[in-house]
Amino acid sequence: MTEFITIATFNFVHEILVLKTILDREGIPYLFQNENLVSTDPLASLAYGGIQLKIHPNDKEVVQQILDNLNNNLKIV
């Protein structure tokens, strides 16, 4: 876990649902730090710095591409 880096931060649990599915499908190891805390108390997101996506540095380029594709193609209203 000490080798993992934070690549993205989210404010709410619903923002990570699609991303979790994609990362699982691709077989990329990840951790969403503070996910359970924010799911039980959404206002704690601001106090704890949000939900942080942590990945291994070797997967940085692949995950960044996935995040870019989601930002360009997935518009949540």
Rank of each mutant, 00 (worst) to 15 (best):
V62Q: 14
H56C: 00
P42C: 08
F32C: 03
L23S: 10
N58A: 12
G27C: 07
I55M: 00
K20H: 06
I7Y: 09
P42R: 13
F32S: 01
L19R: 12
P29G: 13
E15C: 05
K75T: 10
A44R: 03
Y48S: 05
R25I: 01
N71Q: 14
T9V: 15
I51Y: 04
P42L: 10
V13Y: 04
V13A: 11
E15G: 02
E15P: 03
T6Y: 04
H56G: 05
F32D: 03
N72K: 15
Y30Q: 04
I51G: 01
H14P: 01
G50N: 01
S39G: 10
Q65D: 09
N71G: 06
N72V: 10
Y30I: 03
L67F: 00
N11W: 07
K54I: 00
K54M: 07
T21F: 13
I7C: 03
L31Y: 14
K54V: 00
P57T: 01
V63I: 04
Q65S: 10
L53R: 09
V13M: 03
I22W: 13
N72R: 15
V38P: 01
F12S: 14
T40R: 13
I22S: 08
I28T: 06
A44Q: 03
N11Q: 15
F10M: 03
V18A: 13
I22N: 07
I5H: 02
N11H: 13
E3D: 15
I22L: 14
E3H: 13
G50C: 04
I76S: 03
V38D: 01
N36S: 11
N69L: 12
D68H: 10
F12A: 15
I5D: 04
E26H: 08
G49W: 00
I51Q: 05
P57H: 02
Q33A: 14
N73F: 00
Y48C: 12
E3Q: 15
K20V: 02
F12L: 12
K20L: 06
M1Y: 09
I16D: 03
K20T: 07
I66V: 07
K54F: 00
N11D: 14
N58R: 06
S45V: 03
G49H: 02
H56S: 03
S39T: 15
P57D: 04
H56R: 02
N34I: 06
Q64D: 10
V13L: 00
D41T: 13
L23K: 12
N69C: 12
Q33M: 10
K54G: 00
L37V: 12
A8Q: 13
A47M: 09
I5T: 05
Q64M: 08
A47H: 09
P42I: 09
P29W: 14
N73C: 02
P29V: 06
I22V: 14
H56L: 08
N71H: 14
H56D: 05
Q64S: 13
N69H: 09
N71L: 10
A8V: 07
L46C: 08
I28S: 11
I55A: 01
P29M: 11
N69G: 04
P29C: 11
G49V: 02
L43D: 01
L19T: 02
E35T: 06
T9N: 11
I16G: 02
E3I: 10
I66M: 02
D68S: 12
N69T: 12
I55Y: 05
H14D: 09
